[in-house]
């Protein structure tokens, strides 16, 4: 098994390298960091701009491939280069990476667990009121894009807080720097509420639809009938035999849904003013910050492939048929 994991890892490293290089090339060719310096008052001399851009490896007069090699050489040694105005990308990333990871981790786990639970419940209660209610709500939720949901949540909380006269639920930022200790922790949790809802609701709806359909497919299969022929109650047969088997296909969607989760995180961070990797991407694109964009792309690629890898492991642990003995 270890050998195959290693091979998988090697493929993933190549894919990450390719994806990140692609992203760098795209960013380096489409973006114009020079613009930020050219428009200045008083005007900056061209040689000065060139020198600055050269120092940051952002000069469009240098052939793109040469810039790429410099960048890639840096990345290999762990240096992601300079931001558009000379800051260290590494430092910026260090500040932001945990912010995003925390959001993504909570969102992914909660989304998967709740989605599967809701979907399984819905399947067992097929055609009952609760099933229909869950079905309708998940359709509505899936029709509301994250940026809309986040905006709506922010507006609603704003009005709620105003109506109450105090801040019940935080809707901007990640924590209050003035607090410390236990209060700080609670405050962090409070700040997490809205971003988590806006990030997970969609994936709960997504997984619940999948899990429900998979359960219903499995429900009519022979082995559930066998379990009932043994003398198990319908409910027991469903939970012991159908749910477990129906989890397998849901686990394969894990990797795919993670990409959507990342995109959702960009909006969530931006709208709730979290200084994570997603918000950074949007700012970096607007500031023509090539190296930051490339760094976020690399981070994204690593996350996506890690999720795919986890999904493989999850499927292998759930399904004895795909395990290599």
């Amino acid at each position: 098994m270890g050998k195959f994991l290693l091979r998988r890892l090697a493929t993933n490293v190549i894919l990450i390298a390719l994806a990140a290089s692609l992203a760098y090339m795209l960013a380096a060719t489409t973006m114009n960091p020079r613009g930020a310096y050219e428009g200045r008052q008083p005007p900056v001399a061209e040689e000065v701009i060139d020198a600055t851009l050269d120092a940051y490896n952002l000069n469009d007069k240098t052939p793109v491939f040469e810039r790429y090699l410099t960048w890639a050489g840096g990345v290999v040694t762990g240096d992601f280069g300079k931001t558009w105005n000379g800051g260290s990308v590494n430092e910026e990333m260090g500040r932001r990476i945990m912010v995003s990871l925390r959001l993504l981790l909570i969102g992914t786990l909660l989304g998967f667990a709740l989605g599967v639970a809701v979907g399984a419940y819905s399947a067992v209660r097929q055609y009952r009121f609760s099933d229909r209610a869950i079905g309708v709500s998940s359709f509505v939720v899936m029709a509301v894009p994250v940026f809309l949901l986040a905006t709506l949540l922010a507006i609603a909380t704003y009005n709620l807080n105003r109506g109450l006269g105090f801040t019940l639920i935080e809707y901007t930022g990640e924590y209050n720097p003035r607090l410390s200790g236990w209060d700080q922790f609670l405050n962090r949790l409070n700040h997490l509420i809205l971003p988590t809802i806006s990030l997970t609701l969609g994936s709960i709806a997504f997984y619940s639809r999948i899990q429900r359909n998979m359960m219903l497919d499995v429900l009519n299969q022979d082995f559930v009938r066998t379990a009932m022929a043994k003398g198990l109650r319908r409910r027991t047969a469903l939970f012991k035999h159908a749910l477990r088997t129906a989890l397998i296909p849901s686990a394969t969607y894990f990797a795919f849904a993670f990409g959507t989760m990342l995109t959702g995180a960009i909006f969530t961070e931006k709208i709730f003013s979290w200084h994570g990797m997603g918000a950074w991407l949007v700012d970096a694109i607007n500031q023509n910050d090539v190296n930051s964009v490339a760094a976020v792309s690399l981070f994204t690629a690593v996350c996506v492939l890690f999720a795919a890898f986890l999904s493989d492991l999850l499927v292998a642990s759930l399904d004895p048929r795909v395990r290599v003995s």
Binding site: M31, L262, L281, V293, V296, S297, A301, V304
Partner: peptide
């Protein structure tokens, strides 16, 4: 599939 489409289009 490694990079979300949003990211690539945003870069372009």
């Amino acid at each position: 599939l490694v990079l979300p489409s949003f990211l690539i289009i945003a870069i372009i």
